[in-house]
């Protein structure tokens, strides 16, 4: 049981340092952790960890979504130039089409097929016009399909979004506060302390575990201005913590 607990904490710490990587690779785990997971029977591991309940939280990110996606998705029509199982072939067809100065060329993966689609039309006739043009340009084997199409957001919508972003950027510097980077939050004091220890050895900035709003947060750095914190955040994000963010902390 002791051994299990020790490995449990080590696995957790490994995941913590791993947090930012988008694609986790089991093969990157330290050999002793892998050995531990591989030699135990899996029913035994499940019974030991009994983690059968989790909650995920988001605090909303209107700005992020609009920024990443200045269009809405709707039902409509596209011209399809390719459907097949070979990704290379789909890329090749897409490149040929882009070479014809076509701008909305999409490669999508759907129902186990790679598809190359062109255009965003809300009616079939417009798609047929493109189809004729393509044929005129000697592009063969194109047909019309019903598809999810992109509709760009209106100028007004985009302006409203930019305004909102500006407002968010100009948040006031409050006296008696400093900036720090939050890398981790948990309600387990032990875990926060463990991570603090690990990070303190690795980073060139002060690391602390503080209790805020009934959860334990691991904070890195003490910066008097936001730009200093942003500079360091970039470094942290590059290294391990893609999800770290800047927070304001009252000075003691």
């Amino acid at each position: 049981m002791q051994r299990h607990l020790r490995f449990s904490i080590r696995i957790l710490l490994f995941l913590a340092l791993w947090g930012g990587w988008s694609t986790p690779a089991y093969s990157q785990m330290p050999p002793d952790l892998k050995q531990f997971l591989e030699s135990r029977s899996f029913p035994e591991l499940i019974n030991t960890y009994k983690r059968d309940r989790v909650s995920l939280l988001t605090e909303g990110k209107r700005a992020k979504i609009i920024a990443a996606q200045p269009y809405t998705v709707e039902k409509g029509y596209r011209c399809q130039a390719f459907a097949g199982t070979q990704q290379e072939n789909s890329q090749r067809v897409a490149e040929q089409l882009r070479a014809l100065q076509l701008d909305s060329v999409y490669v999508i993966y759907e129902n186990s097929l790679y598809k190359v689609q062109i255009g965003n039309f809300d009616n079939r006739r417009d798609a047929e016009i493109l189809l004729d043009k393509l044929r005129y340009s000697k592009v063969q084997g194109v047909w019309i399909v019903e598809a999810d199409v992109h509709r760009p957001k209106s100028i007004e919508e985009q302006q409203a979004f930019q305004q909102q972003q500006l407002e968010e950027q100009q948040f006031e510097e409050q006296p008696g506060y400093y900036y720090a980077i939050q890398v981790f939050a948990t309600n387990d004091q032990l875990k926060a302390a463990q991570l603090k220890e690990t990070l303190a050895g690795d980073l060139d900035q002060p690391v602390e575990a503080v209790n805020q709003a009934s959860s334990w947060k691991v904070l890195v750095g003490k910066f008097n201005d936001r730009s200093g914190a942003e500079e360091y955040l970039k470094k942290l994000k590059r290294e391990k913590f893609a999800d770290a963010w800047i927070t304001q902390v009252p000075s003691p």
């Binding site: 696995i11 939280l57 993966y109 770290a244």
Partner: peptide, 29 residues
Amino acid sequence: QTGKVLPSNFFFFTESPGSWEKLYLIGAG
């Protein structure tokens, strides 16, 4: 995100250190 299904139904959860929006699954098979 690409629609690739989870390898199996044989897994347990772990907390998601560093982010409340992420879930880790340790699984077998």
